Amino acid sequence: MTKKQIELMKNGKGFIAAMDQSGGSTPGALEDYGISESEYDTEAEMFDLVHAMRTRVITSPSFSSEYILGAILFKHTMNNKMKGKYTADYLWEEKGILPILKVDQGTENKENGVQLMKPMTKLDDLLAEAEKHNIFGTKMRSIIHSANPEGIKDIVSQQFEYGKKIYDAGFIPILEPEVNINSKDKLESEIILKEEILKLLKNLNNEQYIFKLSLPSQADFYQEIIEHPNVVRVVALSGGYSQEVAVNKLSENHNMIASFSRALLQNLTVDQSEKDFDKELKDAVVKIYNASVT
């Protein structure tokens, strides 16, 4: 990361495109794109197909720094090329878009109402790879299903613990303690989550973090986090909401920007002409951008 890149992420206008579907979520992403599981036999073939999909999106003229600040990548995408350049270099050098890498190894089974991240046994090696590929930041996700104070405290502590390690290694970490949008006590979970985040933010020195949070039940709920001096940005995940619902909810939250995946890609299909594909992508990008600059 450079000062120029941090300044862009902190003060630039736009949103983060989440392009980091991994092994478990890739079949669903391909299915939504129009490629069924019957069309590939191996994991390698599956990843080749999803890389082709991501390449089509990222190299589209509609995928532009005019609207997009950063893109979150899966390791396989980072290690592959687009138009002759490694993906992160293509994003930054050709598009002016910050490359971000998903680093978690998935989540544990539910306990105390939450799913903690599995121990990141490969983190050191992955960060070394990320440095070689000129990655700006990282992202790691855990999930809150119910308003269990002990579980939520554990989630936040784990995110901050790994966040410091990642920041010290030279990256801006995105901490993503997602609250399940279908939780019966979503607001109660958000209240506990915000309290725990603000508590640990008080203990930071120079660390700079991005938070990726579910769209809140109350508009502008996370303003205290957004305004904290150790917070580069607060971004919203769509969490399963449709594009229309996600965009409408985001527009109610000032200074919170999108980091959408499904809501960005939902109208794109493999059989579209390039003209139609670019048009649908541009339509989604502009809608999400407009909601992000409120």
Score class of each variant (00 low, 15 high):
Thr77Leu: 01
Ile152Tyr: 08
Met82Gln: 09
Asp20Glu: 10
Lys199Leu: 10
Gly163Cys: 03
Ala17Ser: 09
Ile68Glu: 00
Ile210Arg: 11
Lys3Asn: 13
Gln115Cys: 15
Lys75Gly: 06
Ala44Trp: 13
Val245Glu: 13
Pro27Leu: 08
Tyr40Met: 03
Ser65Pro: 02
Asn230Gln: 02
Ala71Ser: 14
Ser38Pro: 00
Gly28Ile: 10
Gly70Tyr: 00
Val293Leu: 06
Ile35Gln: 02
Gln218Trp: 04
Met82His: 07
Lys3Arg: 14
Lys184Met: 12
Leu98Gly: 04
Gln21Pro: 11
Phe221Asn: 01
Asp20Leu: 10
Asn203Ile: 05
Ser242Ala: 01
Ala88His: 02
Thr87Glu: 00
Ala284Thr: 05
Glu244Thr: 06
Ser65Arg: 13
Val179Thr: 14
Ser242Phe: 02
Asp278Asn: 15
Tyr162Val: 05
Met9Lys: 03
Ser157Pro: 05
Phe260Trp: 07
Gly14Asn: 07
Thr26Ala: 10
Asp283Cys: 05
Gln218Ala: 06
Lys118Cys: 09
Thr294Leu: 13
His145Cys: 09
Asn253Tyr: 02
Glu131Ile: 05
Tyr33Gln: 10
Leu175Pro: 02
Lys83Leu: 15
Lys212Tyr: 10
Gly163Glu: 01
Gln223Asn: 09
Tyr162Lys: 01
Ile100Ala: 00
Phe260Gln: 08
Tyr241Phe: 12
Asp276Cys: 12
Thr107Tyr: 08
His145Pro: 03
Ile225Ser: 01
Glu31Val: 04
Gly24Ala: 13
Val235Cys: 03
Ile143Gln: 11
Tyr33Ser: 11
Gly137His: 04
Leu175Val: 02
Phe136Val: 09
Lys186Asp: 01
Ile226Phe: 05
Ser183His: 08
Ser261Ala: 11
His76Ser: 12
Gly28Phe: 13
Ser36Lys: 13
Asn205Gln: 12
Lys184Tyr: 11
Ser65Trp: 04
Ala44Thr: 15
Leu201Ala: 01
Asp125Thr: 13
Lys249Val: 01
Pro61Val: 03
Asn203Cys: 09
Arg233Pro: 07
Ile16Asn: 06
Asp185Cys: 09
Ile144Cys: 06
His51Val: 01
Leu204Phe: 08
Thr138Asn: 00
Lys4Thr: 14
Gly113Val: 10
Met46Cys: 11
Gly163Met: 02
Val234Asp: 01
Phe47Tyr: 15
Tyr209Val: 09
Lys199Asp: 12
Val179Gly: 12
Ala44Glu: 15
Ile257Ala: 12
Tyr40Asp: 02
Lys199Cys: 07
Ile97Pro: 00
Ser189Gln: 05
Ala44Ser: 14
Lys153His: 14
Lys13Asn: 15
Ser259Trp: 02
Glu176Arg: 05
Asp104Tyr: 03
Lys95Leu: 09
Val57Met: 13
Val293Ser: 06
Pro119Gly: 10
Gly113Leu: 09
Asp185Leu: 08
Glu224Cys: 03
Thr107Met: 15
Ala169Trp: 00
Pro61Gly: 05
Tyr86Asp: 04
Gly24Met: 14
Gly70Leu: 00
Leu265Ala: 12
Gln158Phe: 00
Pro119Thr: 05
Leu123His: 07
Phe15Glu: 04
